[in-house]
Design a binder for these strands. Structure first.
Lengths: 195, 195
DNA sequence: GCCATTCTGTACCATTTGGTACAGAATTAT
DNA sequence: ATAATTCTGTACCAAATGGTACAGAATGGC
C-alpha cells in the first residue's frame, strides 16, 4: 500500500480559522491561506475542496467551540453568573490579539450579509444557538426562583446577546481593556446581574 | 471655452454610498459601482480618483449624516429621550432595506479592522463622535438634575452605543421588525429610559 | 461656422483572483 | 527491492481585479 502520512489537518484548519477570523473571507487570499497553513496548493484542494468550503468548516469550528464554552459554564455556574463569565473569559482573560479580532461569526455576518446568503446563514445560526443556550439557562433559573421575572428568559437572553454583539464591535474598533471592562460592568449592573 | 456640464456628482456619490453600505468595500467591484452611479470609467477616475478615495467620501457622508441626526434630536428632545428617538427612526421607521444594511461604519469596522487601518480609523472616529454627542447630552441632563447619576454620562453613552452597535448586528443578521422592537424596549427599560 | 476645452465610452493593461493539471518525491505492504 | 498509492511543488489557466490611455462626442465663446 501507500503512504498514509498527511500534514496535520486539524492544525492547518486552525491556522486557516485564525486568518479568516482576523481578516474576513474576501480579504484572505489563497496564497495567504497556504502560507499560514503551511501546505501546498494541491494538498489544500485535496483536503478542503475550495476556499469557501474551508471557510464553512472554520465557521463551524469557531461556532461550536464558542457554544461549547457557554454550555460548559452553564453546567457549573448559576444562570445569573453566565454573562459575566462569558464576557470576562472572552474579553478580559483572552489575549489582546484575540480580543481585537472580535467574534468570527459577528464579523462574518457584517461582511457577508448582502454578499453570500449561505455563509451568512451559518454564522447567524451559530449565534442563535448561543442565544438559545442563554435563554434556556435563564428560563430554568426563573422557574427555580433564582432570577427575577421582570423580563422573560428569551428577552433577557436577547439583551445579553445584543450587548455581547455590541462588545464585539467595540473590541474590534478599539481594544482598550479598561474601557471594555467598564462597559462590561455597566452592562451587568443595568441587567441586574452585577454579582 | 468648453462645456461645463457634468453628471450630478452628489447623486453619484449617494448611489455609491448605498452600494458600499450594502456590500462593503471589497465585495463592491468597480463595474458594480459604475453601473450604480450611472457614469463611465473615465468620469469615475476624473471625479473620484480611486475606489478607496470614493469609499472614504462615502464613509464621511454617512457618518456626518448620522451625527447630524443625533445633533438635531439633541436640540429638540430631552437627553433621556435621545436613545429611543435614535433607535426608532433608524430601526423602526426606516425602510426594511436600510434596516437590514445596518450601519455603514459598523460594517466597515468589522470588515476592515485587520485589513485597512486608515479606513477603519475613519469609521471608528465617526462612531466616537456619535458616542460623544450622547455623552454631552447626558452630562448636561445630569447637571440639570433631569437624569440620575447612577452611572456617569460617558458610561451611559458608551452603554447606549454598545447596545446600538449590537442592534446593528442584529438587524443585519435577521431583520425581524418585531424582534428589534422588543430589544429596543428591553434596552430602554433596563437603561431606565423607558419613558 | 469654428476652435478650444472638457466631457464620455471603449479598448487596453498588468496584477491578482480562485482553481486545475501533472510530474515527481515519499511512504508503506509485500 | 518493488509496486502501489498518496502525498507535494510548480506550472498553468480563465476570469476578474483596479487603473490608464486615448479617440471622439458634446458644449462653450468667438
Amino acid at each position: 500500500m501507500a503512504r498514509s502520512v498527511e500534514f496535520d489537518r486539524t492544525k492547518a484548519l486552525e491556522a486557516a480559522m485564525k486568518l479568516f477570523w482576523a481578516r474576513g473571507y474576501t480579504a484572505t487570499s489563497l496564497p495567504d491561506l497556504l502560507a499560514a497553513m503551511g501546505i501546498a496548493r494541491s494538498s489544500f484542494y485535496a483536503s478542503f475542496s475550495t476556499k469557501r468550503k474551508l471557510f464553512m468548516e472554520c465557521l463551524e469550528l469557531f461556532g461550536d467551540r464558542t457554544l461549547a464554552m457557554v454550555d460548559e459554564d452553564a453546567k457549573k455556574l448559576p444562570a445569573t453568573a453566565l454573562p459575566r463569565a462569558f464576557f470576562e473569559t472572552t474579553l478580559l482573560d483572552a489575549s489582546p490579539r484575540k480580543v481585537m479580532q472580535g467574534c468570527m461569526m459577528v464579523n462574518t455576518v457584517l461582511e457577508l450579509a448582502d454578499v453570500d446568503q449561505e455563509l451568512n446563514q451559518i454564522a447567524a445560526q451559530k449565534l442563535d444557538a448561543i442565544e438559545n443556550a442563554f435563554a434556556r439557562a435563564f428560563k430554568l433559573a426563573q422557574q427555580q426562583g433564582e432570577l427575577n421575572t421582570d423580563h422573560t428568559g428569551i428577552e433577557l437572553a436577547r439583551m445579553v446577546m445584543t450587548i455581547n454583539l455590541g462588545l464585539r464591535v467595540q473590541s474590534r474598533k478599539n481594544h482598550s481593556r479598561t474601557e471594555l471592562k467598564s462597559i462590561i460592568n455597566t452592562s451587568l449592573s443595568i441587567l441586574g446581574l452585577a454579582a
